[in-house]
Simulated scan of single mutants.
Amino acid sequence: MSWQPGTWLQPESAPADARLRLLLFHCAGGGASMYHAWPARFPSAVAVQSVQLPGRQDRLGEPAFVRLDELLETLTEIVAAEDDGRPFAFFGHSMGALLAYRLTVELERAGLPGPAVTAVAGWAPEGFRTPVEGAAGGQSDEVLVRELAKLGALPADLLDADPQWLALALPAIRADIAVCAGYVDDAAVVTAPLVAYGGAADPLMEPDALGSWSTRTRGFLGARVLPGDHFFLAEAAEAAVIAADLAHLLLRHQA
């Protein structure tokens, strides 16, 4: 086992009285803290846990993954080990959406219990504009940040951060871009129901990109476009809409 239990999920355990579990996957260059306000948006029946990838925030001293296949293999082990018999669901934003989708694929292919619902935001298997090809290496930090900012692929709070703090975050950003660059689409279809969300002014998404999700699941629950750009989740109102929607879907499924 190449991972340590308890380091990947925040909080480490789900309350025993929760009937369902929701695992959240953060965007490239981000961390579990992007979902700090989410648990309070859900009823007590839903235990909300954020997945924290290594190489950032409280895991800054650990090497970040740069290969998608290795990351998915580890995440598959973790989800299987954490399975306690309760229904669970995935939600991911941007790179997190890619991970939520491909982790669903991996679990189903392995014959392991998969999510009751997979929810994705800010990414699509078709019509997504990958930011800064080859950005995992080559460019200087200044050029990389400028290109990512121009594409709207960095959150405002990261752009406004102290330069020293930004320098600490850049290795994780480069690693995450390398992870995403390693994705080769095979048009995999999952049996888990899938719902998609996007920002109306997201510069990384083609107008019809969210619709491509309908071909990747046998149970498409629809696509919802909300106000905002690629980081529309940063707005409390939009995050609350998604949380309420997911809570309804999960509790309806569990019933």
Rank of each mutant, 00 (worst) to 15 (best):
L246W: 09
A247V: 12
P113G: 04
W165K: 15
A196P: 01
L72W: 01
S13W: 09
A80K: 14
E73W: 09
R216D: 00
D229P: 00
M34R: 05
T191F: 07
T7S: 06
D69T: 13
G228N: 06
H230S: 05
V145D: 01
Y183A: 11
A124E: 04
M205P: 05
G134W: 06
E142L: 11
L246G: 05
A223Y: 02
L72E: 02
W8K: 06
A243H: 05
Y183F: 14
L9F: 04
W165L: 13
R146D: 13
L154F: 07
L210M: 03
T215R: 13
A247C: 05
E147M: 10
R86A: 00
F42P: 09
P203Q: 09
R109D: 09
R56G: 04
E142W: 06
L166V: 10
P171A: 10
L23S: 05
D58P: 09
E106S: 14
G114Y: 01
A28E: 03
L20H: 10
R102I: 11
P131E: 05
I177L: 14
A161F: 07
T118Q: 05
A32E: 06
D202F: 00
A28S: 07
P131T: 11
A237Y: 10
D84T: 06
V184G: 12
G85V: 08
E206T: 07
I242L: 07
C180P: 06
R252D: 12
H26F: 01
A89L: 08
Y101W: 15
D162R: 08
Q139G: 15
G92M: 03
V66W: 10
P115C: 09
L249D: 05
L24N: 05
L166C: 07
A121E: 00
L72D: 01
F88C: 02
G29E: 13
A136M: 15
P43H: 12
S33D: 13
H248G: 14
